[in-house]
């Protein structure tokens, strides 16, 4: 139950790390005047040909970029928003030619699907959900889960898109009696879904039946944890969490990610590994992304740090570039590249 049992990953010093494992392959300049907020990669099909495209989001503009030869990019579609700004891109795996965005000021007020008309290739946007939305995640098999409402009338809704991004089915999941903060898929178990809550619980649903299967209390050391990845092995559930609210601790530095193991039958759990900032690296976790066995995080210092979750330590640091701090980082879903963004609209693509 206690992080005292948690192994702290080896802490290499800043001096021993460099950007050697990161190779800059491309740069994309988004000239839209507003503040850049997110980036993602997805497959888009045009004239029967599927291409790995980049999606960039500024406060009021979302753009789709197609690859040209020699790592250049051409903007092919742009969606505009007038009243409510974009907060984040919500990629929906296994769907081609459709991406979702969450809009709002501090909290999400709308989720919209962005697509193109098959008739005249013009940009279209469809309002999928509005209200007081707390959390949203795109899931494999063309699904999107969201939670909305306040504690007493909280709704957890699962939408399933058709292959062409059209007609969708809706299903409701049993809400827990506490506010959901984030959702997380369980790798290889498409009927299982995890959620983290404001009461420091991890809940698990059966997506086929909508049942809430278990509520599992995790260590109170870190509040408001974000679930990034989970997998089940030998009857145990391994979960990678990040801790945006973790305070810096002198001895350990600031933990960015943590691996915990849960026995879903008994709800008993313990910390396995803390992934802390390298020694000498100031600041704490701001936001991050996990794919396969690598985790990337933007730190409050404006630097990006990368951890190999199997090796157990930080493998690369990417300091601010062009005198600009990094503000968001994503792993590309179409290849193994790292997409790093700055507020002014510069997106740098690195091979890791």
């Amino acid at each position: 139950h206690s992080t005292e049992q948690t192994k702290v990953a080896d802490l290499p010093t800043c001096d021993s790390l460099n950007t050697g494992s990161l190779q800059l392959v491309s740069k994309l300049k988004n000239p839209s005047g507003s503040c850049s907020v997110d980036v993602s990669a997805m497959w888009w099909e045009r004239a029967g040909f599927k291409e790995p495209c980049i999606i960039t989001a500024c406060e009021y503009v979302v753009s789709l970029w197609k690859p040209l030869d020699t790592w250049q990019w051409e903007k092919i579609y742009t969606w505009h928003f007038i009243e409510v700004p974009v907060l984040q891109i919500v990629p929906v795996p296994d769907v081609c030619n459709l991406v979702c965005v969450a809009l709002g000021s501090l909290e999400i007020r709308e989720i919209r699907a962005l697509l193109c008309s098959s008739d005249d290739e013009s940009e279209k946007q469809v309002l999928l959900k509005s209200g007081n939305i707390k959390a949203v995640l795109g899931l494999t098999k063309r699904r999107l889960v969201s939670s909305s409402g306040t504690l007493c009338d909280q709704q957890v809704e699962l939408m399933t898109f058709a292959e062409d991004g059209g007609n969708k089915e809706k299903q409701f999941l049993m809400p827990p009696e506490e506010t959901i903060l984030t959702f997380g898929e369980v790798q290889g178990m498409q009927d299982a879904l995890l959620g983290t809550t404001t009461m420091n619980n991890i809940v698990i649903w059966n997506l086929k039946t909508g049942q809430l299967l278990k509520k599992m209390h995790i260590d109170d050391s870190y509040q408001a944890s974000v679930c990034h990845k989970a997998y089940s092995e030998m009857g145990l559930l391994f979960v990678i969490l990040s801790h945006p609210c973790a305070k810096e601790r002198e001895a350990l530095g600031s933990p960015a990610f943590q691996l915990i193991v849960i026995n879903p039958k008994t709800a008993l759990n313990m910390g396995v590994m803390l992934y802390c900032l390298p020694q000498g690296q100031a600041g704490r976790f701001l936001e991050g992304d996990v794919r396969d066995h690598v985790a990337a995080a933007v730190l409050t210092s404006g630097t990006i740090a990368i951890w190999d979750l199997l090796l157990g330590h930080c493998t690369a640091l990417l300091p601010p570039t062009s005198d600009q701090n990094w503000s968001f980082v994503k792993w590309s879903g179409t290849d193994s590249h790292l997409l790093a963004g700055q507020k002014d609209g510069n997106i740098f693509i690195y091979r890791y």
Binding site: N206, L213, G235, V261, N263, K265
Partner: peptide, 22 residues
Amino acid sequence: SLKDLGPISLNWFEELSSEALL
């Protein structure tokens, strides 16, 4: 130790789903 996590079941998802139906 993992023993502190109690009895483990490889079919935990199916078992929890059946228990939730009861």
